[in-house]
Amino acid sequence: MELNNSKIKIKSKNLNVYYGNKQALHNINLEINNKEVTALIGPSGCGKSTFIRCINRMNDTIDICKVDGSIEIDGKEVNDKNVDVVTLREKIGMVFQKPNPFPKSIYDNIAYGPTIHGIGEKKDEMDKIVETSLKKAALWDEVKDRLNEPGTGLSGGQQQRLCIARALSVNPEVILMDEPCSSLDPIATAKIEELIDDLKKSYTIVIVTHSMAQAVRVSQKTGFFHLGKIIEVDTTEKIFKNPANKMTQDYITGRFG
């Protein structure tokens, strides 16, 4: 029991989310394991993105969004009043659907996070951080000679890896990925997937995807969302080979969604 507990990184209990009068999530109970890739699948609008935005409280930025229930990370409540979102988000990085590099140089894109958190105040320390982050994101070799060029000038796949590097730059424990490959071509997607496989050694990763193939390729555990409810969670193998729920079966075989 004790051992099992320490394996769980994030745990949500009876999580409900409302946008104004509309309920977006109903009683979500989900456990996400440490240093593993958890994939969330489901038809669009089912609440997958809403769920991961609750983990780093990105939903705070939406005025009409109201969250109740609990999400714990390492046993600590995320929605607690005393939790500082700034430190929370330092610990939980996020990568978005569309690559969103800042209109700054590649270097400054990575250095932004460490600077605001006061890490790497010396120039050579910062250089080191930029280098390691880019290396972890498998982008270093492609951009090391043009660190001062704008990040917006990179290709889509490179931009997305830059965003991953940006998320890594502040040494997070968890990385949330909201359909990171949906706007990329297959080659760039393959690169990102390879990267995710690599990153799971040191980070807990939650990835929202609508490609079931991708979920199979990258994740160890999969959760299936439908209409704001979680239908089934299990190991990826089990979900795709032998789902317990009829609806999951229908979805993965492509009958709806």
């Binding site: 500082d84 700034v86 430190t87 605001i116 958190h117 006061g118």
Partner: peptide, 12 residues
Amino acid sequence: MTKEERLKKRHN
């Protein structure tokens, strides 16, 4: 500057 001090400064 400790992490807490820094955070406080940022929030101020």
